[in-house]
Design a protein around this nucleic acid. Structure first.
Lengths: 304, 304
DNA sequence: ACGCCTCATGAAAGTAAGTTTCATCCGTGG
DNA sequence: CCACGGATGAAACTTACTTTCATGAGGCGT
């Protein structure tokens, strides 16, 4: 039989591990067990034979193979060498820090700070690495040429949406953000060809956002999804999918790392759009900065 | 018969490739052919199957195995993953990212992404490094014991303030954020001993925020400033000063990195507060997460 | 509630990869 | 000319990997 059709999965240059953890929720339970082992210690996994790994994950070899295919590999040997390469690249001292994990109960604040910063920084870096420049380019182009840009997001992602809106607005793009679903739906219904709708949802399962994005799409707008999970429902209603790479999936820290990752992507898009017309953007930024000047008190000074 | 004595081969820390080329002359002719292929392109070799490699070296699989043993490997698979790792490590593109600088005019999106991510990640890390755990501890304590927490911020910092408010609210602390100065002033006037007021301003010169914080202070509340500049005006009205360490000072990218740094600090405080009463915080988080469950659509699944 | 369908899963069969064995070949020195 | 020893590949063998298929659980429409 021919190659399986496969879902894109094509783009995971930044990191196989990141890629895998992104797809984690889209995997079946047994495959997830395998995935977790692999993510937890890629180097060790690379050393194992398929039977070994299957046993460790309490499943069969068949499932391991299925897992390989699910993450875009041809088979186990390929996964193995990719993992080995990956593990080698991240010479990063694994350190005592809990990567992506929970904060240990007895931790003092210094530890907490270190752990959080580590995870946050990591999310930003890994997000950038796996971000597909080509997809970004297209999104930037769409935004730059859009008649109007609607940005949707609920809860924590709402902040990001709002932030994005503000940024675009500051460089003279016509952008909107709606905290309310009804208003958002109304707005989406008024979109048309040449407009852009951007939906932000970390999990990719926020029905409100999906619904609105779908509406926008049926009206002919270009739809963009920003999510951590490349196979989540929101991607089905999006023309372009941009993914973040935050490992945290628990509610633990209120999804801060994921938010930072989202903001990073937003920044990239923003700068990309601004770069399309530097002088105009610069002028707009200066004007807006000036506008708030009267709300600033005298410069930074040494105090008595 | 026992294992062949073989050349030491025990230790090859510097690099497998180097090691192999070192003992190349001690190998038999057929093995040398294999070795040369491997040294010439380790990555390619790692991708080949043993039969493949044997054919390419115009020899038999048996010889390849012998070669593996000669260089100290257990067998072909082990050689393979070692080669993959080796190849990955030596690719390491040190790259010339623009550190802290502006985006060069002609930059393509990939460069933009790399630059932004680098600066963002840096801001997060450096902020964490210079953050004073003792000061944080005191702030955490104040928040944990506060009757009420007011959070102020304008513009971009307003998002952070709002985010913080939401976070604290989710773990059951009574926290407020006011987008409007007047409302904020009113609220500050009602604060008293045992309450906490937090002012967020990147530049530390936002008069609105300073004014409100001052009001709060005169009412007896504990005041906290979160700013990038330890000697800015806002610090004069704050009992505790927490600083971020974002390099960007220009309006260039709309205060990107600084926002991430602020969020990181907020996250640290949040986790610190939550850690004070894990079970309660956890319960609250679970409850709030559950509350939005009905707004989530079916899990991530493979689509057709 | 019922049956139907889809999907996840592992057992087992099948195939390919890796490893060992062994006979051969070739050069060397008696 | 005949041992002898090392190098080598063919083939047997073993292990690892892959595919197929039957089963059973869970969801969905009737």
């Amino acid at each position: 039989m021919a190659k399986s059709p496969k879902i894109s999965a094509s783009h995971e240059p930044g990191g196989l591990i990141v890629h895998i953890s992104g797809l984690l929720p889209s995997l079946s339970p047994a495959e997830q067990r395998v995935a977790r082992l692999v993510v937890a210690d890629p180097a060790a996994a690379a050393r194992r034979t398929i039977t070994d790994l299957a046993t460790a994950a309490e499943t069969s070899e068949a499932t391991v193979i299925r897992f390989c295919r699910s993450v875009g590999m041809d088979g186990y040997p390929q996964l193995r060498i990719r993992l080995a390469a990956e593990a080698a690249r991240r010479v990063e001292p694994p350190d005592a820090r809990v990567v992506g994990g929970d904060i240990p109960p007895g931790a003092d604040l210094a530890q907490i700070i270190a752990t959080i910063a580590f995870n946050d920084a990591r999310a930003v870096e890994e997000t950038a690495e796996q971000l597909d420049p080509a997809a970004c380019e297209q999104v930037v182009e769409a935004i730059a040429g859009a008649g109007r840009i609607d940005i949707y997001g609920a809860g924590a992602s709402g902040f990001v949406a709002s932030d994005f809106q503000q940024k675009l607005h500051r460089i003279g793009r016509i952008a909107f953000y709606f905290p309310d679903v009804h208003t958002a739906l109304t707005s989406a219904a008024l979109l048309g060809r040449g407009d852009v709708a951007i939906g932000i949802s970390h999990t990719g399962t926020t029905s409100d956002v999906i619904e609105v994005l779908e509406q926008a799409r049926t009206r002919g707008a270009v739809t963009v999804a920003l999510t951590n999970f490349p196979r989540s429902p929101i991607t089905e209603v999006a023309d372009f999918v941009l993914t973040t790479a935050a490992r945290e999936t628990t509610y633990r820290s209120g999804a801060t790392a994921s938010r930072l990752a989202q903001l990073t992507v937003v920044d990239c898009l923003f700068v990309g759009v601004a770069a399309r017309n530097r002088s105009r953007a610069r002028k707009a930024l200066e004007a807006t900065a000036e506008a708030v000047l009267s709300h600033r008190v005298g410069a930074n000074r040494r105090r008595a």
